[in-house]
Amino acid sequence: MGSDREPVRVVIVDDEQLVRMALRLVIGSEPDLTVVGEAADGDAAITVVDEQRPDVVLMDVRMPGRDGLSATRELLARPVPPRVLMLTTFDSDDLVLSALRVGALGFVLKDTHPAQILAAVRNVANGSPALSPTAMERVIAAATGPQSSHTRDSTRAAARQRLSVLTERELETARAIADGLGNPEIAQRLHIRVATVKAHTGSLFAKLAVENRVQIALLVRDAEE
């Protein structure tokens, strides 16, 4: 995906035409990226993605009609889903957090510097999360913010049930991922080889039915809340 010979194919979804135009100009100016479609709402996004088969979808969270969260959930249920990068103004932390839970790989603010948007698109195209430290702080704050005791207990119980299928080493790996460590750092913390970390991570993906490391991190935080 996104090799030198084949640019990363991007679809832009936002209800504001000016935002779509700006993103198209920024992304389309890069030789390794190409915009293959646009949509103004979630329903149109589904249609464009089915037609164009992009590598990455830049998805607005809030739009008239079908919102970005609903569209993201449907897209990521596809047999071969695109990778989704959410667009937000940060007045919608809860929706973004929900999108990360269903498999979006990250999110960027609409007023983010163009260079950072391009870096985020490339990271997501490569299967890596695109969450700045500031953005991650906001996500953690949303995930650990005030909840009713019933909701908090239910969320914790469900997360612990899912994690209960893991071996002790897999659970240690999951906790290290939640701490934001990369494979080399995890290997150093657990005194194991990087290849072993990769094997444990593969098991986490399979056993927890997740698509990326962000989902693992959120699940661990839910369990330890």
Rank of each mutant, 00 (worst) to 15 (best):
N126K: 14
G42W: 02
D43Y: 06
A119G: 04
A44M: 05
G37I: 08
V108D: 07
R53F: 14
G42C: 03
Q17F: 12
P82D: 09
E74M: 02
S3I: 01
G106R: 10
E224R: 04
N126G: 13
V48F: 09
G37A: 05
L109M: 15
A217V: 09
L18H: 15
R20M: 03
F205N: 04
E185N: 10
R221G: 08
M21G: 07
T134D: 15
D60V: 09
P114T: 06
F205E: 11
V10Y: 03
F107D: 11
M86P: 05
A135F: 05
M86A: 11
I27Q: 01
R73N: 13
A178L: 02
V11G: 07
T201P: 04
V139S: 08
R162W: 02
V102I: 14
T167V: 06
L18F: 15
M136N: 07
V102T: 15
S3W: 04
P133C: 06
D43K: 06
L25Y: 15
V197S: 10
V194F: 01
L23F: 14
S132V: 03
A157D: 11
S203I: 03
F205I: 15
A158S: 14
K198M: 15
Q161M: 13
R101T: 13
V35E: 04
V26T: 08
Q147I: 03
G145L: 07
A44E: 10
I117T: 13
V139Y: 03
R175D: 04
P7E: 01
V108C: 11
R122I: 05
S29V: 02
T134Y: 09
P129T: 15
L97V: 10
S148P: 04
E16S: 10
R213P: 00
P82R: 07
P114C: 10
T112R: 08
E172N: 13
T196F: 05
A159T: 02
A199D: 12
L204V: 01
R169Y: 08
S3R: 04
A40P: 00
I46M: 14
A159L: 01
D4R: 10
L69N: 09
T144W: 00
A158W: 02
D55G: 10
S154I: 09
L171V: 08
T134Q: 11
R175Q: 11
R156V: 14
G65S: 07
A104G: 05
A119Y: 00
Q52N: 01
N123C: 05
L218V: 11
A130D: 03
D60P: 00
E38V: 13
E30N: 06
R83S: 00
T173R: 01
P31Y: 00
T134N: 09
L204W: 01
Q215Y: 10
T134C: 02
V11T: 12
G68K: 02
A125R: 09
L97D: 01
R62T: 15
A40N: 01
F90N: 04
E16H: 13
S92H: 12
G202E: 08
M86F: 04
V11P: 08
A174H: 00
P64T: 15
H113T: 07
L58Q: 06
V57Y: 14
T201W: 05
L95M: 12
L33E: 05
T151Q: 14
L18C: 03
L118R: 03
D41Y: 00
T201K: 11
T72S: 15
L166I: 01
L109N: 13
P79S: 06
Q161N: 14
